[in-house]
């Protein structure tokens, strides 16, 4: 993992281009790096947004992008691909936090959370954590049924990407994104309740 710390902006841009051409390896190189950066940023930003009402995942994704790709050399297209990777990472960050929360709760209330945990990750309430786990389970099912729809959910729901960004990242029309998102969230909701 340590070598990922050395990933330069140029490499990231290169990986993003390779990834947009369909290179699976490039994705595997990008993901851990983006995951770590996002998580770090989610923590840092939480405290910088003191003037704003809330910090949303869209902001975390975009701020992280700006932090990594400083030169602005990347195209709109590769930015969309970055957001795609980041949405997936964001899903994982939230789901991991939920699983951790559940483990902690089941471990009993006596279990101590140390101060250092405030630096670690995002904090979710019990209810949100449980619901996120259910949504994630349903999303895994949707992945088997129709993986494109699952990706749209990741982009729209977890990454907070716009219809246009999602369309660009997935190489489909904005109309398709709208339609699929519409159906996918209804499908997920229906399956949440039928578990």
């Amino acid at each position: 993992m340590t070598e990922n710390k050395e990933v330069s902006e140029n490499e990231i841009t290169l990986y993003l281009e390779e990834f947009s051409r369909g290179d699976k390896n490039a994705f595997n190189k990008l993901f851990p790096f983006v995951y770590r950066e996002l998580r770090q940023n989610a923590h840092n930003l939480r405290f910088q947004f003191f003037n704003m009402e809330t910090l949303n995942t869209t902001a975390i994704v975009h701020e992280t992008y700006l932090k990594i790709i400083r030169a602005g050399s990347a195209t709109y297209k590769s930015r969309a691909h970055f957001c795609f990777v980041a949405s997936k990472a964001m899903r994982q960050i939230l789901v991991n936090a939920s699983i951790k929360k559940r483990a902690l709760r089941r471990g009993g209330s006596e279990k101590r959370v140390s101060f250092d945990d405030i630096h670690n990750s995002v904090h979710l309430s019990d209810q949100t954590a449980e619901e996120l786990i259910l949504v994630n389970d349903a999303l895994e099912k949707l992945e088997n049924e129709n993986s494109r729809q699952a990706r749209i959910v990741e982009c729209r729901f977890f990454g907070g990407m716009s219809v246009e960004e999602t369309a660009s990242a997935l190489d489909i029309s904005p109309a398709t994104v709208k339609r699929s998102w519409n159906l996918a969230k209804t499908w997920l909701y229906t399956h949440l309740n039928s578990f």
């Binding site: 989610a42 947004f49 003191f50 009402e53 949303n56 949100t128 996120l132 907070g160 209804t186 997920l188």
Partner: peptide, 24 residues
């Protein structure tokens, strides 16, 4: 379920945003 689904995800999203931001 369509309407309820839209509302559900909006609320869940809002809640996640609130919880991860804490703002000031």
């Amino acid at each position: 379920n369509h309407k309820k689904a839209g509302a559900y995800f909006n609320i869940l999203r809002k809640r996640i945003e609130n919880e991860i931001s804490l703002s000031n």
